[in-house]
Structure formats: structure tokens, C-alpha cells
Simulated assay, not measured.
Amino acid sequence: MSRLTLLAATLLLLASAPARAQSQPLAKRAGKRAVNSSDQNNSNAPFAGRNSLADGQAKSRIEGAGYSNVSGLQRDNEGVWRGKADKAGTKTDVSVDFQGNANPAK
């Protein structure tokens, strides 16, 4: 194989590498984010997983879901933040999963 042919083949391979990296559908790549925005929550149940939220962020997510007086917030062994909070005058168990979903605990 000549040097020119080898060089051309190498350049073609390098040029196609970024295209292969982007070939995964955007929806599939977006679903891998640890924390989605509140309008992208995809579950009413907490997902177990390594939690990237700090306790203050978990508390903010719970408050953003309409709860107040958040207390006893602890991360369990599945990576889900769990605690208690008030909503509509009732104290309830709440949870925040690794995706940022804040829900009544189940």
C-alpha cells in the first residue's frame, strides 16, 4: 500500500469518528443525565441510583414540589433522599431520587 493511500485511509477514519460519537439518538443520551429539570421528571416513583444531589439541593427539590418544613432528610443505601415534609397541612414522607424527582415516599 502506498503512503498516499495509507494517509488517505487514516484521514477518512479520523474524519468519521465524531459522526459515530453523535450517532446515538438525542433522547437516549438525554436520559442518562443524573439530574433532569423539574419539567423532565419521568417517574412518580423514586429511582435507586448513585445520587449526585447534595442535601440542600434535595431539600430545594422537595420544596419546589410544593412541600414545606422539610425535616429528617437522609440518603438511604439506594441513593434516594428520604425525609418528612408538610403539604396541605399534612406531614408526609417524601423522597428525591438521583434524577431529581421529588415525590411522596413509597
Results as ranks from 00 to 15, higher is better:
residue 1 M to R: 04
residue 1 M to A: 11
residue 2 S to E: 13
residue 2 S to Y: 03
residue 3 R to D: 15
residue 3 R to T: 11
residue 7 L to E: 11
residue 7 L to T: 15
residue 7 L to C: 09
residue 9 A to Y: 03
residue 10 T to Q: 13
residue 10 T to N: 07
residue 10 T to W: 13
residue 11 L to D: 04
residue 13 L to N: 08
residue 15 A to H: 02
residue 17 A to S: 07
residue 18 P to I: 13
residue 18 P to M: 09
residue 18 P to Y: 05
residue 18 P to F: 06
residue 19 A to F: 10
residue 20 R to T: 13
residue 21 A to C: 05
residue 21 A to F: 07
residue 22 Q to T: 07
residue 23 S to R: 04
residue 23 S to T: 05
residue 24 Q to I: 15
residue 24 Q to P: 00
residue 24 Q to D: 08
residue 25 P to V: 10
residue 26 L to A: 15
residue 26 L to D: 10
residue 26 L to Y: 06
residue 27 A to K: 07
residue 27 A to M: 06
residue 27 A to N: 10
residue 27 A to I: 11
residue 28 K to Y: 06
residue 28 K to E: 15
residue 29 R to L: 14
residue 30 A to E: 14
residue 30 A to G: 01
residue 31 G to E: 15
residue 31 G to M: 09
residue 31 G to I: 07
residue 32 K to D: 13
residue 33 R to D: 14
residue 34 A to N: 11
residue 34 A to M: 11
residue 36 N to R: 09
residue 37 S to I: 09
residue 38 S to T: 15
residue 38 S to H: 08
residue 39 D to W: 09
residue 39 D to N: 13
residue 39 D to K: 08
residue 40 Q to T: 08
residue 40 Q to V: 09
residue 41 N to W: 12
residue 43 S to Y: 03
residue 43 S to W: 01
residue 44 N to T: 14
residue 45 A to Y: 08
residue 45 A to W: 05
residue 45 A to K: 13
residue 47 F to Q: 11
residue 48 A to Y: 01
residue 48 A to V: 03
residue 49 G to M: 07
residue 49 G to S: 06
residue 49 G to I: 05
residue 50 R to P: 02
residue 51 N to Y: 02
residue 51 N to I: 02
residue 52 S to I: 12
residue 53 L to R: 04
residue 53 L to Y: 04
residue 53 L to N: 06
residue 54 A to H: 07
residue 59 K to E: 08
residue 59 K to L: 04
residue 59 K to Y: 00
residue 60 S to Y: 02
residue 62 I to F: 00
residue 63 E to Y: 00
residue 63 E to P: 03
residue 63 E to D: 05
residue 63 E to I: 06
residue 63 E to T: 12
residue 63 E to N: 12
residue 64 G to S: 05
residue 64 G to V: 01
residue 66 G to D: 05
residue 66 G to T: 10
residue 68 S to R: 11
residue 68 S to M: 03
residue 68 S to H: 05
residue 70 V to M: 02
residue 71 S to Q: 14
residue 72 G to Q: 14
residue 74 Q to N: 13
residue 75 R to K: 15
residue 75 R to H: 03
residue 76 D to N: 14
residue 78 E to N: 10
residue 79 G to Q: 04
residue 80 V to E: 01
residue 80 V to G: 04
residue 82 R to N: 14
residue 83 G to K: 04
residue 83 G to Y: 00
residue 84 K to P: 00
residue 85 A to P: 03
residue 86 D to I: 01
residue 86 D to A: 07
residue 87 K to M: 03
residue 89 G to N: 04
residue 90 T to W: 03
residue 90 T to M: 09
residue 91 K to V: 10
residue 91 K to P: 00
residue 94 V to K: 03
residue 94 V to A: 02
residue 95 S to T: 11
residue 95 S to G: 08
residue 96 V to I: 06
residue 97 D to G: 03
residue 98 F to D: 12
residue 98 F to G: 05
residue 98 F to Y: 14
residue 98 F to E: 12
residue 99 Q to E: 10
residue 102 A to W: 00
residue 104 P to S: 13
residue 104 P to A: 15
residue 105 A to S: 12
residue 106 K to T: 14
residue 106 K to N: 12
